[in-house]
Design a protein around this nucleic acid. Structure first.
Length: 425
RNA sequence: GUGAGUGUAGCUCAGUCGGUAGAGCACCGGGUUGUGGCCCCGGUGGUCGUGGGUUCGAGCCCCAUCACUCACCCCA
């Protein structure tokens, strides 16, 4: 028996990893453009951090965390999401003491013990931003605009941005009471799951897929009619800014975030191409969170993008530059010639040319491999070339080749590959 | 945690009525003393997921088990 990877943990092979890093670079670029700076966070935190921020009774905290005790008996958990760590770091490092508005982004793996399925893995990667300290609707609109922009920027088009207003700690309970009351009056029409949820987490009933429950949900009171005047004004201001800005969205009162810290604006970017796990990015406002974790009473909001899901949405013809060598070195003939080829390859690499090595087999085989690897040039160095102190420089695309002095091939390649400008500059 | 589906070559899959395995792609070699793609020829590669049972005989039938996938749930 060979040792296999852990369930829900995957390898990302060359090719896909290249696409991954290119997309990541583009998103990083957008984050920078919007003024966010990267924060590098630990993967491991005290379990208490997530219990206090996400909510003790959330699904994630109750049964999806990789929690264990370290050798001193302290309960630690692999992070199931990024916001809790970012806020913890913000407080711990007194980031509120400088500019009152702090913009952070993070990237990396998150861990949740769930049954794997399409678009859902136990280790998955997120890129997320946190904008802490800005209570204004402009902050919400700005963050939504960033999300809208970067989805388009990486080439993903068929996504829907849906937003909702969740109210805040002052006005949401009144809505939940109203909803519970309504659901209680329709108990006989609800499915077993929803009967359970009606009390504990009534908003979950609203996006049940059972037909009878959909009918019940259709007549349910909308949260948009129940939030307080301030929350409503905030939401309307955000919508007005999005409209002015031309950001397309729909208002979906059924959006319920699974983490307790969200207030007011909550949103999801979804695609029907993703299967059941259809959210590619999601986030919202979390104004009470920093204070709840022992920090100052400052507002915040953010979102996270699911990298695996985003990559699944990329069009097949996405123009991703290759990460394969542009030059292949072929050494043929005697041991001396092959040695010379090896040394030349090494010298070229040290000067910045990506060189693949032919593997020392037959000339035909080495050329075939160079072709399959997509090399634009092949350098052939055999006994004949060694004797004359030159090499054959073959242009694979134009099917032409020339003999050039061995000492000059580096400069020639740097120029042809467009790599010499950085040297001059 | 619940349900369904699928496990045959590196990959995608055929495999009839039970008679101890095949294709395409990939990989390797040759056709060209040292020149790639296309074409032609040849080759490597399989405890048919695993264990048990039925049978003269099991990839195929039965039982168990494991893995993977999708869905519920939950969420990025």
């Amino acid at each position: 028996m060979t040792v296999k990877s852990v369930k829900g943990f995957r390898d990302t092979l060359p090719g896909e990893s290249n696409v991954w890093r290119r997309v990541e670079e583009r998103i990083r670029g957008a984050f920078h453009t919007w003024g966010f700076q990267e924060i590098l966070l630990p993967f491991l935190e005290r379990t208490e951090l997530f219990a206090r921020s996400l909510g003790e009774t959330t699904e994630v905290v109750e049964k999806q965390m990789y929690s264990f005790q370290d050798l001193r008996g302290e309960s630690l958990s692999l992070r199931p999401e990024g916001t809790a760590s970012a806020v913890r770091a913000y407080i711990e490092n007194h980031l509120d003491q400088g500019d009152p508005i702090v913009r952070l982004f993070y990237t990396g793996p998150m861990f949740r013990y769930e049954r794997p399925q399409k678009g859902r893995y136990r280790q998955f990667n997120q890129m997320g931003i946190e904008l802490i300290g800005d209570p204004s609707p402009e902050a919400d609109a700005e963050v939504l605009s960033l999300l809208d922009y970067l989805l388009a920027h990486v080439g993903v088009t068929d996504v829907t941005l849906a937003i909702n207003n969740l109210g805040h700690a002052g006005c949401r309970p009144a809505y939940l009471d109203a909803l519970r009351g309504y659901l209680a009056s329709s108990r006989e029409d609800l499915c077993a799951d929803c009967l359970r949820k009606a009390e504990q987490n009534p908003m979950r009933v609203l996006d049940c897929k059972v037909e009878a429950c959909i009918a019940v949900a259709a007549g349910a009171p909308s949260i948009l009619d129940h939030v307080c005047a301030e929350c409503r004004a905030h939401f309307e201001a955000v919508r007005a800014l999005l409209d002015l800005n031309g950001v397309k969205y729909v208002v979906d009162p059924r959006i319920v975030r699974g983490l307790d810290y969200y207030v007011r604006t909550a949103f999801e970017a979804t695609s029907s191409r993703l299967g059941a796990q259809n959210a590619v990015a999601a986030g919202g406002r979390y104004d009470g969170l920093v204070k709840a974790l022992g920090g100052p009473d400052v507002p915040g909001l953010g979102f996270a993008i699911g990298m695996e899901r985003l990559l699944a949405l990329l069009p097949e013809d996405a123009d991703v530059p290759s990460d394969r060598p542009s030059v292949a070195m072929v050494g043929a003939g005697s041991n001396e010639a092959r040695q010379a080829a090896f040394l030349l390859a090494d010298r070229l690499r040290r000067s910045g040319v990506a060189v693949g090595w032919g593997g020392g087999r037959s000339l035909k085989s080495q050329l075939r491999r160079a072709d399959k690897a997509g090399a634009s040039y092949v350098i052939i160095l055999g006994d004949e070339e060694l004797e004359k102190d030159e090499v054959v420089l073959r242009d694979m695309r134009h099917q032409s080749q020339e003999r050039v002095p061995r000492a000059r091939v580096g400069d020639i390649l740097l120029r042809r590959l467009g790599l010499d400008e950085t040297v001059k500059g």
